[in-house]
């Protein structure tokens, strides 16, 4: 089985991002960059399937600047087999990402594509669903459990939805997007890091793929949200109930 995993380089979730002077981007100095947390979970799921189904190859794909090599290298150190970096100086919106991934899927012909449910920078939660439609494939988003059938021709996926858990059956090839509770990603081991240095990382300029990546969405302004200021401390439960009743009038 071949599994493609989409990996985005994003600011560490602990970073407090600052708006850049241009007013449409963020300042990138002092930002620590990591694999999008959901994509790390997607990689882990790929690796677990590889451990279960012999002969499985896990291929990582990232679209971005050369610096995304770092995140791909980390994924290879976790245990993925090889990586593809599609070079684009311009940050691509989810539809463009999906079109690039579609092209790579046509070339690589994987049975399963794993993505994160959401990139924690743009918070779009779109690319996986869009890719599924472009390919005409089934999708199982927000996955908390993935069981691939013995013949690797279908997957049973439990999804985190409003009000509970939904289970879907999808024939493969298909798209799965990872939610937080799908697994707990492993750390790269030292031997893993050594091995990763020798693994293949192919770079393709986005223009070579011949897909339409022209933006449909343009950020015209980026602002800091109005700050909510803290109120005050209360001395006791009695006082709390009193202020909620008399002052805030919410109980």
């Amino acid at each position: 089985m071949k599994i493609l995993v989409a990996v985005k380089r994003v600011p560490d979730p602990e970073t407090v991002v600052k708006i850049a002077p241009d007013g449409v981007g963020i300042t990138t100095d002092n930002v620590k960059w990591v694999i999008n947390p959901f994509d790390e979970i997607a990689i882990e799921e790929g690796l677990r399937l590889k451990e279960k189904v012999s002969g499985t190859e896990v291929v990582l794909v990232s679209i971005g600047q050369k610096t995304a090599q770092e995140q791909l290298r980390t994924g290879l150190a976790m245990g993925a087999d090889r990586a593809i970096l599609v070079l684009s100086d311009q940050a691509l919106e989810p539809l463009a990402v999906a079109r690039v991934l579609q092209k790579l899927v046509e070339q690589e012909k994987p049975e399963l594509v794993l993505l994160g449910k959401q990139a924690i920078d743009d918070d779009s939660n779109c690319a996986g669903q869009m890719l599924a439609e472009l390919l005409g494939w089934p999708q199982a988003t927000f996955a908390s459990k993935v069981e691939v059938g013995g013949d690797q021709r279908s997957a049973k996926v439990t999804r985190e939805v409003d009000g509970g858990l939904e289970t879907l059956n999808i024939p493969l090839p298909g798209i799965v997007t990872a939610d937080l509770r799908l697994n707990e990603p492993r750390y790269a081991s030292l031997p893993g890091i050594m091995k990763a240095r020798k693994k293949e990382m192919k770079e393709i300029p986005v223009a070579d793929l011949g897909v339409d990546v022209a933006p449909k969405a343009r950020i015209v302004k980026l602002e800091t949200p109005p700050k909510r200021t803290g109120g005050r401390k209360v001395g006791s439960v009695e006082e709390l109930v009193k202020v909620l009743h008399n002052e805030a009038k919410v109980i």
């Binding site: 919106e93 989810p94 539809l95 999906a98 918070d123 779009s124 939660n125 779109c126 690319a127 996986g128 669903q129 869009m130 890719l131 599924a132 439609e133 472009l134 999708q139 988003t141 927000f142 999804r159 985190e160 939805v161 409003d162 449909k216 969405a217």
Partner: peptide, 21 residues
Amino acid sequence: AVGKDLLPRVAARLGAGMASE
């Protein structure tokens, strides 16, 4: 959960620009 699952797929089908949340 349904809106988030469905709309991006619709956008891709229509080749439409999308804004979420």
